[in-house]
């Protein structure tokens, strides 16, 4: 199965290799936390994760073809 991962906000600056959306291929369904770690980031770093534009928790398991957006924490007003 494949899941697309997109970064938003400051996270794009910190992980320039992920500036463009990345497709993560996995043999079995895995959690959001595992997908974040698979792209080289601590699972706790994004403040929120959207799956197909809906907020999900780190233990959510996306389906094949879903899009995850990893949001940077709010940047201090």
């Amino acid at each position: 199965m494949q899941v697309t991962v997109r970064l938003e906000g400051h996270l794009r600056e910190f992980f320039p290799k992920l500036h463009e959306p990345r497709t993560v291929a996995c043999e079995r369904p895995i959690t959001v936390a595992e997908i974040i770690e698979a792209v080289g980031m601590a699972a706790s770093l994004p403040s929120s994760v959207l799956c197909n534009r809906v907020r999900v928790e780190r233990d959510h398991v996306p389906a094949d073809g879903d899009e995850l957006v990893l949001l940077s924490p709010l940047a201090g007003g």
Binding site: S47, L50, R53, L74
Partner: peptide, 20 residues
């Protein structure tokens, strides 16, 4: 249209509390 807008707008800055 920004995904950040969708996630953040309903709550404003308190959205960051759990992360902080």
């Amino acid at each position: 249209k920004q995904p950040g807008f969708t996630a953040w707008q309903p709550y404003g800055t308190p959205e960051v509390v759990p992360w902080a």
